[in-house]
Design a protein around this nucleic acid. Structure first.
Lengths: 110, 110
DNA sequence: TTCGAATATTCGGTATTACGAATTTAATAT
DNA sequence: ATATTAAATTCGTAATACCGAATATTCGAA
């Protein structure tokens, strides 16, 4: 496989590699939401969410539709939700271990 | 979903978010390989590959087995290979667009 | 027009990541 | 013991990512 494709793939994973962006995709799993609704549900800074949306847009994991004053986002392809679902089964399988990892991380972290 | 789990997921995606690490997992898709074999097939610096292996180990996407002088790596769970396969179908679906993206990136990049 | 609401972008600081060079560790063979 | 090979770790530096504050853009309403 050519390296260019691997870089493209890595870009997609990079876009998935942030808790906030995963949360956004999960929120969009049931249908489109406006940027404002996302901001409200996430309870985060407007600029910050907007920046995360920009990352998802740049990698085209989401598409957006403008309606008047608002911008509605939705997941570009259901395959991405399948990936998240697959990951969910992976996490459940290793849940205990994952929890240990998180505990260790937070202990050494601070 | 709790944020701690999202962080764990993000960590896994983060580990996948590098061309070299994707290449490593793809090479391991057909069975275990020693660190040295990986280095040779990738044609990269020993230290660099070893560091990428450390990332994959830390997130437990791979497991390793020591045998004498060598260390053999393999993918921890076939689910991860399924994820990569799913992604492959996604990439094929948007191949044309991906190529445009890559072209634009390399143009503006330098 | 001008105003206000929704969203995006820019900016500056800090933290994280990636790399190669050099060093260290672990195992075997001599 | 010491040399050799495989692999991991440390170190310094450059690049990238993240965040909130401030600013800019875009649209509809008054």
């Amino acid at each position: 496989m050519p390296d260019s494709l691997r870089r493209f793939k890595a870009g997609v994973f990079q876009a998935l590699a942030h808790p906030t962006r995963i949360a956004i995709l999960e929120l969009l799993g049931t249908g489109e939401l406006s940027a404002g609704e996302l901001i409200e549900k996430l309870g985060m800074e407007q600029a910050n969410v907007s920046q995360h949306l920009a990352v998802l847009r740049t990698q085209r994991l989401v598409v957006n539709r403008k309606s008047g004053n608002q911008v509605f986002y939705s997941v570009r392809d259901p395959i991405l939700l399948e990936v998240l679902t697959l990951m969910r089964s992976y996490f459940q399988k290793y849940l205990t271990e994952a929890q240990e990892m998180l505990r260790e991380m937070s202990e050494s972290g601070r």
